[in-house]
């Protein structure tokens, strides 16, 4: 496993604020990994995302992206490798049409026009938005806008895709479609794409290889989704949601049922219940 992002002792405080938004953060994310960063609103997760592509510069500590140290001189190299999808679909749409928006990042990098055209088409194809190429953003749904945002990032062929609460403003259908899309991309690109999704959606976090919990500016927990989700009390303490199967286990335990301690997915719990009830 090769690390692609590493932070060592990173601290950041916003100007005019008394407490740092992130404190002494050290972590490593490996190439090809899908990591979910979870934490309540205001925990510092979005600050973390902005540090990764040098939209913010750390006050202390060091950030390395694909062996490049994040500094003022390197920021454009870093932004070439890190693509970001933000929370509000409306506020990241630059182009007046879908195709223009996808082209924007390439225009910035001086990509020749012929190459741009084929890359715009390929990227739109990938997110199934080709029929909408000439539409204006105002005529798209939130989910469609976010898919265009992903296409805009993909067209730049990044190594790292950051989803900064990119599903938070979508309806359940939009959210599911977006998670499915990231799954597809991950399946196709494998180790060539590292995904960091900042979220409080449990389903989104459950899709990740690893989950990190940030609470009040500190990294408090890292582990497999199963390890993190099994601890319902802790999740609640951090202001997070508890997966349904774990909630049900808690309720059964309260009713005097002896349930397994380890984490169970919905399917896992259904199977366990089925076996237990059948043997009664």
């Amino acid at each position: 496993m090769t690390p692609i992002i590493s932070l060592s002792h990173v601290t950041y405080a916003y100007p005019n604020s008394d407490a740092p938004a992130l404190r002494d953060l050290s972590l490593t994310i490996n190439k090809g990994e899908w990591v979910a960063i979870i934490g309540h609103n205001g925990s510092g997760k979005s600050t973390f995302a902005k540090l990764l592509n040098y939209l913010l510069a750390p006050d202390e500590g060091e950030i390395t992206v694909n062996d490049v140290i994040a500094t003022e001189e390197n920021m454009w190299t870093i932004r070439d490798m890190v693509g970001m999808v933000f929370q509000n679909p409306d506020n990241q749409f630059v182009g007046a049409t879908v195709a223009d928006d996808v082209a924007f990042g390439m225009e910035n990098r001086g990509v020749p026009r012929d190459e741009m055209i084929s890359r715009v088409d390929a990227a739109l194809e990938e997110v199934q938005m080709m029929p909408f190429a000439d539409r204006e953003p105002a005529r798209l749904s939130g989910g469609q806008k976010q898919r265009v945002a992903i296409a805009s990032v993909l067209a730049l062929q990044p190594k790292i895709l950051i989803l900064d609460e990119a599903t938070a403003m979508l309806d359940p259908t939009g959210r599911r479609e977006m998670i499915a899309l990231v799954h597809e991309l991950k399946a196709r690109m494998g180790n060539d794409l590292t995904v960091i999704s900042i979220t409080h959606d449990i389903d989104e976090a459950a899709s990740a290889d690893r989950v990190m919990v940030i609470n009040d500016g500190e990294l408090v927990e890292t582990g497999l989704p199963a390890e993190i989700f099994a601890n319902a009390d802790q999740l609640r303490r951090f202001g997070l949601a508890v997966p349904f199967a774990e909630q049900l286990k808690e309720q059964l335990r309260l009713r005097g049922i002896d349930v397994p301690n380890e984490y169970l997915t919905t399917e896992g719990l259904v199977t366990w219940l089925w076996q237990s009830i059948s043997t009664k």
Binding site: K50, L55, R79, M84, N91, Q92, N108, R109, L156
Partner: peptide
């Protein structure tokens, strides 16, 4: 932010 993140300078 979004424009900068996409390399606008």
């Amino acid at each position: 932010d979004a424009m900068e993140a996409r390399g606008y300078r």
